[in-house]
């Protein structure tokens, strides 16, 4: 079967631009609203979708995504709802890669094998787990790989040369570079540090490099897109959902459209 993640990066590269990766929390503000938001992301021009699994204790997230988690859980979102959202998305969008992102506990609660099988059946292409580093890979990695679901790892400003191979071992799909040592949200990395980090990562892997954390404006997205294979935007979209609730979809589409336009205008990734 064709690898939707690889295809999406190849497609963007062929168009001479970085891929746009967008994050929203599943079930925010309610499970029934998420389909329209996901469609808006795709219509706005997102190449890959990260669907956040809500968790009561999102330790790596800033206030925007913390609030999104709370809204989702307050609306009664269950793990079953997340898989239902994913399954329906896959039916509507056969070719757009869908990645589940979240924390370990909801993923392993019923066993990693159960989670991996559900993800596969729902048409999920990859999983990002914030709090399972390579050292604890056995908790989730083998089950995902056995099902052919990508385990996408994070590299950070603290991931040095000596450690990078451990991060890359067993990771696939793409490498997510967390550009700031910190939580999701408003803090932004200097472009020069991103340029340097992406060059360092590219010397270690052939995987596409996506850069996220603190990316908010089309200008920032374009600057990052000029060096990276993908740009991840999350908190800024989640804030729009926080502001507009069930009516957020058109606003999300406009904002994502502005990000995509900025990426389209740029030179091919080096």
């Amino acid at each position: 079967m064709k690898d939707r993640i690889a295809s999406a990066f190849a497609h963007a590269r062929a168009e001479g631009r970085a891929a746009l990766i967008t994050f929203v929390t599943g079930g925010d503000p309610t499970p029934a609203d998420t389909a329209a938001v996901l469609d808006a992301l795709v219509e706005g021009g997102a190449d890959l979708i990260e669907l956040g699994m809500p968790f009561t204790d999102p330790m790596a997230d800033g206030s925007a995504i913390q609030l999104a988690n709370l809204r989702s859980l307050s609306a009664g979102t269950k793990t079953a709802d997340i898989f239902a959202i994913a399954t329906a998305f896959r039916t509507r969008h056969p070719n757009v890669p869908l990645i589940l992102m979240g924390y370990a506990n909801p993923m392993i609660r019923r066993g990693a094998e159960w989670f991996a099988a559900q993800a596969k059946a729902a048409g999920v292409d990859g999983v990002i787990c914030v709090d399972i580093p390579p050292e604890e890979d056995a908790e989730l990695g083998p089950a995902l790989r056995a099902c052919g679901v990508h385990l996408i790892r994070l590299a950070t400003p603290t991931t040095d040369v000596a450690r990078l191979p451990a991060v890359l071992e067993g990771s696939s799909g793409f490498l997510y570079y967390v550009s700031v040592a910190g939580i999701t949200g408003k803090q932004q990395a200097a472009q020069a540090s991103i340029d340097e980090a992406v060059a360092h990562l590219k010397s270690g892997t052939g995987l596409p490099i996506a850069v996220g954390f603190g990316v908010r404006t089309p200008e920032q997205a374009a600057a990052i897109g000029s060096v990276a294979d993908g740009v991840v935007v999350g908190s800024a979209i989640v804030e729009i959902i926080g502001q507009h609730g069930a009516q957020a979809a058109p606003h999300v589409k406009d904002y994502v459209g502005s990000l995509r336009a900025a990426l389209n205008a740029k030179e091919p990734a080096r």
Binding site: M59, A60, A104, V130, D131, I132, P133, P134, E135, E136, E139, R153, L154, A155, T156, P157, T158, T159, D160, R163, V167, V178, A181, G182
Partner: peptide
């Protein structure tokens, strides 16, 4: 175990 974000692992 050590179930932390990658940023914290080196530390």
């Amino acid at each position: 175990g050590r179930y932390v974000a990658e940023t914290l692992m080196p530390l």
